[in-house]
């Protein structure tokens, strides 16, 4: 019955993993292309808007035309698009319409704050979500219902509203944490930590609820499978059964939600960064939208897409790592 594939040692054989990664990368190309094109087309659908943004509505027709010419907007759409795309691939995302700074430079200044938030949030969601989920799966009863209630509330409270409440409570009333601003990690680690607490709590609540639910369901499912009984009937201690075997198997479905939780967190930064005045990509996107800075927002779309693609890649690798069936087939 054993297939010939099993002849080779399955340990340390990463070529199937490599294939997995390759497949995801291949899939990412159309995704990247699709998102960039969609946003570009959306903007192009509104003629004249770019020149209008720069000049205001009171400029003369000649002035508009001059701007259009200088930005290449008088060219056919396809040509403009291909031009933008090939520049983007080389890292040139054009200049901001608002203050003429290079878009990539504007974005790069904001990356540290955004990465600090999204990475911390993802870790917080995983650590707390998995812990709560395991407790809930094992204990059930009251704790279960309590967690259910909290997570229903956690999902119903808009993150920005929660953020504002937290600022009011912990920063304005009791000055436990700074209300706003961001301290760079290179500047001061404790300052960074302090400035991160409120935004990370705000953005993690719904993710924790999601991971808790997924972990609980997965743990319940795994604990009901026959192999758990085998381990029990053979005298393996309960601790090992839960934390080594059940958790390891439950981790597989849990990993699959990381990608979705991450997209949730990234979307959340758009709403929440402003509340805490964190100088990140999300806040930049909002100000780009409010100033109609289309080249800037276009560049941010590119970065968002790249971030999501890389996270999906990491999730895939983790998934393959946890699921030997994938790794070896």
């Amino acid at each position: 019955m054993t297939r010939t594939k099993c002849e080779t040692d399955t340990r340390g054989n990463f070529s199937p993993m490599l294939k997995l990664v390759m497949r995801r990368l291949l899939f990412s190309v159309p995704l990247f292309f699709f998102v960039c094109s969609t946003s570009y087309v959306l903007i192009a659908l509104i003629p004249g808007s770019i020149a209008q943004t720069i000049l205001g509505i009171n400029a003369t027709a000649e002035e508009y035309e001059a701007v259009n010419r200088s930005l290449g907007l008088d060219r056919p759409f396809l040509e403009r698009y291909l031009n933008w795309f090939s520049n983007a691939l080389q890292g040139d995302l054009g200049n901001s319409l608002y203050n003429s700074e290079p878009v990539s430079q504007l974005i790069n200044q904001r990356l540290e704050a955004t990465f600090s938030i999204i990475i911390s949030c993802t870790l917080v969601c995983l650590v707390f979500g998995v812990t709560f989920g395991v407790i809930s799966a094992l204990r059930g009863g009251l704790i279960d219902r309590l967690l259910d209630g909290i997570s229903a509330l956690g999902l119903a409270v808009p993150n920005f509203f929660l953020g504002v409440i937290l600022v009011q409570l912990f920063a304005l009333r009791f000055s436990v944490f700074p209300a706003i601003g961001y301290v760079s990690l290179g500047e001061s680690v404790s300052g960074w930590f302090h400035s991160m607490v409120l935004p990370v709590v705000t953005l993690s609540v719904s993710g924790i609820a999601v991971v808790t639910k997924q972990t609980r369901d997965a743990m319940r499912d795994v604990l009901g499978r026959p192999f758990i009984r085998t381990l029990q009937s053979n005298g393996v201690p309960q601790r090992s059964i839960i934390f080594k075997h059940a958790l390891r198997n439950a981790a597989i479905p849990v990993v699959t939600v990381i990608g979705l939780v991450f997209v949730g967190i990234l979307s959340g930064t758009v709403l929440v960064e402003g509340v805490f005045a964190v100088p990140g990509l999300g806040g930049l996107a909002v100000s780009a939208a409010s100033t109609s800075d289309v080249t800037l927002i276009q560049g941010i779309v590119v970065y968002f897409t790249l971030i999501i693609i890389s996270v999906n890649l990491v999730v895939d690798v983790l998934y393959g790592f946890l699921n030997p069936k994938i790794r070896n087939s």
Partner: peptide, 20 residues
């Protein structure tokens, strides 16, 4: 699958920048 990995809010911001 492709659509799901795009945060809707960012593309809505694109729309806002074009149609305030």
């Amino acid at each position: 699958e492709m659509l799901m990995s795009i945060p809707a809010i960012i593309l809505v911001l694109v729309v806002f920048s074009a149609l305030p």
